Every structure is written in C-alpha cells, then in structure tokens.
Computed example of a mutant assay.
Amino acid sequence: MRTIVITGGTDGMGAALARHFLARGDRVVVIGRNRAKFEALVAGVTRGTPSAASRAEFIAADLSLVAESRRVVDHLTAHHERIDALVLAASFIRQRRHVTPEGHEASWALFFLGKYVFVTGLAARLRAAGHPVVVNTAVPGARPDAIDFDDPGMTDAFTFTRSNAQQRRANELLGLLATRDNPALTYVTWGPAWLVKSGFAGDVGLGMRTAATVFGTLFGRRPEKAVAPVIDLIDHPAPGRAALRGAKRLALGGARDDKDAVRLAAVVENSL
C-alpha cells in the first residue's frame, strides 16, 4: 500500500486526487484547513469503497505559517516510515502584499517556503520509498531572473505578477536541489493545461474573483479530468526533474540554474 500525502487536498484538484487514490486502495494523508470538507470527501469515497475511511488521515494546518509546515512534517516523520508521493497543491491567492505573524510575505511563505520545508524535511521518508514522486503544482515556465534574492519578500515594488513568477521559478529550482539529494526521486512542477472548475480561495479584487468564477464555470474542466496527468506521473514515475502543462512536457534547465539553486537554498536557510 502506497502512502500519498496531499496538501490542499480538500478542494479542487487536490480533493480529486485524494478521492482517486483512496478509491484505488492507497493510504492518503490530506493537509488542509477544513475537516468538514475532508470528512465529506471520505464519506463519498466510502460509499463505493468501504475501506477508504481506515486509510484516510487529516492533518489540520495553516501552511502559510512555516511553523505549521514544520509541525506537519514532524508528524508525518513520526507516523509514516515512507512517503511514496507528495503532492503540493495548497493554494490561497493574494493580489496584494500581506505579512504573516512570522514576518514572512504570505504568498512567498505558502507557495514556496512551506514547500521547501516539506520537500527537505521529508527527504528521508521519500528516500525510503521505492519510486518516490513529488508533484508541485507550481506552473512551470517562469523567466530565469524572476527571483529577487536580495528581497524575496518583496518589501519594495510588490506586484501579483512578480510574486507569482518568483514562486514558480523558486519551485523549479527546488526540484534541482531535491533530485541532487535523491537521484531516485521524480520531481515535477506541474500546471493544468486549461482552466479547472474549482473553488476559488483568495484575497483578491472583485475583478479577478469574478473572472475566475465566470471563466472557470463556463470553460473549466472538471478537476477529475484535469488531474489525469498527475495520476499518471505518480503511477509511472521517471526519476529526475520535469515540468509539464497538462500532459505536455516543457523544457527545463538553463546556464544559471545550478548557481541560482545554491543561492536560493542559502537565502531560504538564512530566513527560516
């Protein structure tokens, strides 16, 4: 029986993955903020697969806080000998700069610092699996110069576009660090090929919220269809680092990647 860990697993694509792997007979650990949604998800699967409830675990956490990510990693390390797949799908969109009680810029903390803690903190448990996989739902393809190494919290000139690009670039480099540490690891930065019908969690303006709701409703794919490439990645891992939009592979690698990955790790370790 595989152990699948999913952050943001109570809504949208994360929930679709949790339902799939529970129905398949895997052990699934969901990290999120809403236990009621988790219980409804499990109840739905249990109607067709009675054993699902015994293989489902929920850990309540606010992953915009680094301390919470560390607490979850400690719990997973204490209770699971190995982790076969780690899906990093937690999301909360912020259009404006926000600082957490820990002093980190909130989007940087949720979309990168917490993921860094998960990937590095669970490295031994991933290494214990035969064919470990990390799927990071950070849409690939950010420009190489997207990270402000001197000010990753963007205290000056914060914009949603700059913040989004920085997170995406950082998560690509995290894959370089992770696969160096564990050559057997499959690490994929992945984004859906098209809009997905799912709940929209975020602190954004009316325009962005309305556009996301309307276009998602009219043109979005159901989460169950959107995550089919992710399921294939977990079922058929290929060690190394990759980037995909839907099922389409994108080019990775550049002249500055190695240097930037080392620099990023130093910046993050100094800030945590």
Rank of each mutant, 00 (worst) to 15 (best):
I59S: 06
L65W: 14
E57K: 15
I4M: 14
G25M: 01
I147M: 00
M13V: 02
R24Q: 14
A52D: 00
H80Q: 04
P101N: 12
V188E: 09
L122M: 05
G207I: 15
E81A: 12
V134H: 02
L110C: 00
A53H: 01
F38R: 05
L250K: 14
V227G: 11
A36T: 11
G153P: 01
E68R: 08
A36G: 13
A90N: 05
H104P: 04
A226V: 09
N164T: 15
L41D: 04
L218H: 00
D145H: 01
Q95V: 13
P140H: 04
A226L: 07
A165V: 06
K37G: 06
F200H: 03
T161P: 15
G153Y: 00
D181K: 07
S198P: 09
R71E: 01
L233M: 08
V214M: 01
W190R: 00
A36P: 09
D148N: 01
D156R: 12
R82W: 06
G220C: 07
L244N: 02
F38V: 03
V5H: 14
D156C: 14
R127C: 08
R35L: 13
T77L: 04
A165N: 02
V134Y: 03
V227Y: 15
Q95W: 11
S51N: 08
R47A: 11
A89G: 06
A251S: 07
A251T: 10
S163C: 14
V188R: 12
V134M: 03
A40V: 14
L63H: 12
I83F: 10
K197A: 10
F149C: 00
V66C: 08
M208Y: 13
G216L: 09
R2N: 11
P192T: 06
